[in-house]
Structure formats: structure tokens, C-alpha cells
Nucleic acid binder design. Sequence first.
DNA 1: ACACTATCAGCATACGTATGCACACAATGC
DNA 2: GCATTGTGTGCATACGTATGCTGATAGTGT
Lengths: 332, 332
Amino acid sequence: MTVTSHDVARLARVSQATVSRALRGDPRVTETTRMRVREAAATLGYVRSELGRGLSTRATHRIALVAELENTLYHQLMAPIHDELLERGYRMALLAEHGDEAIHERLLDRSVDGAILMTTRLDATLPYELARRSLPFVFLNRIGGPVEAPSVTADNVGGSRAAGELLIGLGHTRIGAIVGPADTSTSRDREAGFRDALEDAGLVLPSKRVFRREYDHETGRLGFAALMAADDAPSAIFCANDFIAIGFLNRALELGITVPDDVAVIGFDDIDMAAWPAFELTTVRNPLLAMARRAAGTLIDLIESTGAAERDVFPTQLVLRRTHGAPSESTA
Amino acid sequence: MTVTSHDVARLARVSQATVSRALRGDPRVTETTRMRVREAAATLGYVRSELGRGLSTRATHRIALVAELENTLYHQLMAPIHDELLERGYRMALLAEHGDEAIHERLLDRSVDGAILMTTRLDATLPYELARRSLPFVFLNRIGGPVEAPSVTADNVGGSRAAGELLIGLGHTRIGAIVGPADTSTSRDREAGFRDALEDAGLVLPSKRVFRREYDHETGRLGFAALMAADDAPSAIFCANDFIAIGFLNRALELGITVPDDVAVIGFDDIDMAAWPAFELTTVRNPLLAMARRAAGTLIDLIESTGAAERDVFPTQLVLRRTHGAPSESTA
DNA sequence: ACACTATCAGCATACGTATGCACACAATGC
DNA sequence: GCATTGTGTGCATACGTATGCTGATAGTGT
């Protein structure tokens, strides 16, 4: 049914070994026989089996992308990763994580040469498991615990510190924050950087002005409800990512609260939507696309053992748009 | 280095064949030996090789998802497809299409059991190639040419007809449209349905009131520029998907044009964003998530040869929000 | 006690490709 | 003309799992 290299060999009147070598461009086969083999392969429509090849070479040229697909931030990283992998001769398998569900087996069954972990939690056991079984992997955007592995992240501490300094410089004193899950490195670092900035200015971030949930739109809406009802509601809110910020903006819009006059908002990531006229969100640019390509490249270097485990930190940059702004007189 | 079934066999003092049977739950192996094998496997941390298994059984239990990743609409379909596949014991490979780039080989190298085609163009040759080589596949959302293959789509003609009827019922007579690429079945069908509605009302859709480009945000912005500058600019615009509509809304917002008073807008798909307070987009619901799961299920039925090639059409539904509305007196 | 059946495990091999090794042949040097 | 070197191809086998067939053992009935 399916055409194998044996079929090609028979038609070209050579051995299967020669077919393999000819099609792979081995210099030890003559140009004339190579042509004959190529022709036979074309005639039969031969496509080399990745299964046979993988079994023989012990390499699949496929890497796994592991993410919680519920978090749509990571969707946009698939294209750059896919392209980088393709350029280097690799393909992509997609593995969705759902909380604690075990995906160990699907990574360790030799169906992939390595993995990019995008949504790892700090207490995750998966990275240790992979390290123990020596499956190459890199962390992208988030880091999971103190495992020896390359990582590609943004300067989350510096970025959120800059966000905090911006709000303080504008004169805000009652400042709140809506953050993501505590067991993620991004939340930990972004919160730390933001607190640093406040502390330097002699301010504190009381727990009543912190709302913590997921990195999503809904969290922004819920955070609004939780933080803005108080009499001494914040005059400025730092959102740990842009989805949260946009959820907050949407809720404000719905209630007729004006941004930035009634409350200033600053996000993190600078996703495409942040620049839309409907939002004009002031935010911290997280160079995710470049990071994604880098992570893919680093992983392949690691697989082909030309790379070492290092922490790759990309600089962030404050992007000033509309939603920051000095607090109005009435709320200052 | 890696643990194989032979290693397990040696430790459990049985043959490799028995290990295979024991772990697969073959009733021909005794409960006691099965236990012994299980224990040995656990001790060694054995994980069955998908490569060996695939080569032997001629099935990979992996399906390919083929899409133009530039189109972010399809990103949200990955999670439901992934989950449906997982429930039925399949995994997912992601293959990005870039225009005409040939992905034939990566589908035909026996690394996948089937494919879901999401962004096929009407003139694409890939479906014919797959059919010729008898690789099972299904179309999702879009259809590509008259190939014998199952498809899962929305009732695009009916949905856009309803959109047209809504605008006409509101009294609009100068109506425009911003549509996607002509070589997609969705554009063809949505345009046809919309034209049907106008024709029934004795109206026409002149080419000067149609702007055609991609299914994205930028197209909405460009469409605004192209259609709204005229003296007799449309009082209502049908956008062939929500990204286009939201791009249009953003541009209107930027220019201070009021929706729906100055111009009514209606989209297609009902993506999450459409419901956001910033947009409140009136649109046609395209039950994409349910369709995605269905497509995955249909494909697996086909692979396991319990299914037939049929066209599965999901009903659409008009979702009335804010952006439709009667034309104001001044523009009517 | 014998023949017969049922049950369980092992042997051998297939799946498709890659590759170390051996071998055949031609070309070269003396 | 013989030994030597180099070049191109084939043979055999490995990779890890699944499975048809054979064989061994225990259990049953007469």
C-alpha cells in the first residue's frame, strides 16, 4: 500500500541501502545512480517514513510545545516557534496542560526530541522529571523552580519596577494591583518589582489593594469589583498582564468610570490589542515573539548539544499611551 | 540508556512479547505475571516507545492540525480539538501553512493518521493530494473545492442572509461590505448570503461598496478608509468576520465616528471580544468550539473507519448587541 | 492412567530506515 | 602484470513494539 525505500530500490535496481544514501545526499553514491534513484522515487511518489527514520536514528526532529491553552497569551507564540523550528528542520507537537494532569508519559515516549515549557508553575514536578530522564527542554516566559535548564524570559522585575515608578512619578499614592497566580514566576517577579518601586518611594502595597486570580480578562473585571468599591479606592492600578488590564478597562467602560481621570491603569506584555484605539493601554513591552524564536533556537542547540543552560533575559520597555496619567485633583 | 520492553522482560523474567501483552491488558496473560510485569515496568520507569509501536501497528495516534497561524481565529480552536483528540487517545501535531508552501510531505510521511484542514483555499491542491494518497482528513470551518471529504462548517449563507435582512429591516439602503479573500469558501458563502438578502429587498451591492482583503483587524481599518470617504458612504457595513468588524470599530473610534448612529456595523463569528463593553458588536454566532470538537470526532471516526464523508452544517444565530441600529435621520 | 482440551508464555518475524562492514571493481604505480 | 589504493554498492543488522504461531504445562473427563 505505502511506498517504501525497498520499492524504490527494486525499481531503480539498487539495494535499499543505496536508496537511503542516495536520497540523503551521501557523497559515496555516484551521480548517475543518485539520479536513477531520485527518478524512481519520484515515479513512485516515495515519501520517507518518519517512523522508520526516527526508530533508526533515535531522533524524531519533533519538539513539544507545552502550555495551558486556556491562556490565550501563548497562542500567539505558536507561529514564531513553528517557523523557527521549521527553519531548523523540526516540527511541532502541541501538548495542552490542564492543571495537574500528567503529561509526563507523552513527553517521555520518545515521540519528541525536546520540549518548550511555557506555562510551568513554580511547584511543577514535570521539569525535574524531564531532567531526570534527560529530555532536553527550555522554559519560555515563565520559569519553574530551581531546575538546571535554559530559560528565556523578560526582565519582569525591571519592567514592573518601571511601571511602579511611572505611577509614583505621576503623584499617585493609593495604588492597587491585580495579579496572576502566586505559583508562577511571572507573578512573583512582577509583583516583587512593583513592590520594590513603591518601597523606594516609601509606599506600601496593602493586601486589601491586591487582587489575585488568573491571567485573564475575567480577572480584570473581578479585580475592578474587588478594589474599586472601597471609599479609599486606588487612583492607579497595576495589572500583571494586558488581558487583566483590558478586562479592567472594559468593566470601567461599562460602569462609566473614566480612565485615566478616575483611575489610571497600566498593563504588562504589550499585546497587539493594547494599541487599539478602544484601549490605548499604557503597558510594559514584553518581547514575546523574539523570545519565542530564541527559545526554539536554544532548545535545538541543546538537542544538538551545541548549547549550554543559561538564563536568557530580554529587556522590557515602558510603552506610554493613554491609560496612565496624573490623578485628578479630586482623587489625589 | 532508554528503557525498552526487553529490559522490563529481563527483570520480570518473561519474554518481551509477554511484556507487550501484559501492559496492553491482553487477557491471555495471567494476573500474576501481569502484576510482575507491571511492577518491573514501574521499577524501571518504562514508557512505551511511540515510534516502535507506530512502526509495528502502522498507526501513530497523532493527527495534524493544518492552519494559517496568521489567522488568530483558529488559535482558539486548538484547545477544543486537543481535548477531543486526547479523550479518544490521539495527539496533535501543528502544521502551519504559509500561502503555497508545500506541506504535502510532512503529512504523507506516515507521522500522522489524519489531518484537520482549517484554512484551506478553494483552489488548494492539498486535499486532492491527500485523497489520492488516502490520508483521512476533514475540513473545518472552511471547505476546499469539490473533494470527497467530510466537512464541518457553519451555515454561512444563512447567517449572512440574516445579517443582511437585519440591516434592511432597520431601513438601511446604502449598505457596504468588508470581506475576506475570494478564494475561501467562507467568503464566497457569506458574500452570497448577504447579496441574497439585498436582492430579495430589491437592493444591490455595488463593487464600490465592497472592500476585500484578509480576515483580520487591519482589513477593518483599511475598509473604513476605502468605503467611508465617499459622499454617499454606506450607513451600514457588513463585515465578513469579527476581527474585521472590530478593526472597523477601532478606526471609527479613532476618527470620532459614532457607531451605530453614524454607521451601523455587523460582524460574523461572535468571538469572545465581540461581547466586550468596548465593542458590543452585533454579530452572527458561529459555533466554532462545538464545530471543532465535532471535526476532531469525525476525523477519528473516519480513521477508525466507522464514519462516512458527510457535510456537517451547524446553524448560526444572530446576536443583537449595540452596533446595529436604525440609520439616523441625517444619513437615511 | 490415558487422551484431550484449555491456558499461558515464548519464538520468530514484521514494520521502514540507517549504517558499519565487507566486497567487487577500476585505476594507478612500480 | 602484480600489488595497492580508492571508489561505489550490497549485506546484514539495529532501532522498539506487536502478533501469529508453536509449544509447554496443567486441568478435565473417562
